[in-house]
Amino acid sequence: MKLNPAQLGKQLQGTLAPVYVVSGDEPLLCQEACDAIRAATRQQGFSERQVFNADASFDWGNLLQAGASLSLFADKRLLELRLPTGKPGDKGTAALLEYLGRPPEDTVLLISVPKLDGSAQKTKWAKALIDGPHSQFVQIWPVDAHQLPQWIRQRMAQAGLTASQEAVDMIAVRVEGNLLAAAQEIEKLKLLAEDGQVDAGTVQAAVADSARFDVFGLIDAALNGEAAHAQRMLEGLRGEGVEPPVILWALARETRLLATIAQQYAQGMPLEKAFSAARPPVWDKRRPLVNKALQRHSAKRWAQLLLDAQRIDAQIKGQAPGDPWSALSLLTLSICGQRLGLASDTGL
Score class of each variant (00 low, 15 high):
Q31M: 11
E32F: 10
E32L: 13
E32C: 13
E32G: 13
A33Q: 02
C34A: 15
C34T: 14
D35K: 13
D35S: 14
A36K: 08
I37L: 06
R42N: 10
R42G: 13
Q44H: 08
G45P: 01
S47D: 14
E48C: 14
E48H: 13
R49H: 12
R49P: 01
Q50H: 10
V51H: 09
F52N: 05
N53K: 12
A54M: 01
A56E: 05
F58Y: 09
D59Y: 02
D59S: 14
D59F: 04
W60Y: 06
N62K: 15
L64Y: 01
L64V: 07
G67L: 01
S69E: 02
L70A: 15
L70I: 14
L70M: 15
L72M: 13
A74S: 15
A74L: 05
K76F: 00
K76S: 09
K76R: 15
R77T: 14
E80C: 13
L81V: 08
L81Q: 03
L83W: 00
L83Q: 02
G86A: 07
K87P: 05
K87R: 13
K87Y: 05
K87L: 06
G89A: 07
K91P: 01
G92D: 01
T93A: 09
A95T: 02
A95S: 06
L96G: 05
L97R: 07
L97Y: 00
E98T: 15
Y99C: 04
Y99N: 02
L100N: 08
G101K: 04
R102Q: 15
L109G: 05
L109P: 02
I111H: 03
S112I: 12
P114G: 07
D117I: 12
G118W: 00
G118Y: 01
G118S: 12
G118M: 04
S119E: 10
A120D: 05
K122P: 02
K124T: 09
K124D: 02
W125N: 06
K127N: 06
A128G: 06
A128D: 00
I130T: 08
I130L: 06
D131Q: 12
H134T: 12
W141A: 15
V143C: 08
V143K: 07
Q147R: 15
P149G: 10
W151H: 09
W151L: 09
Q154I: 10
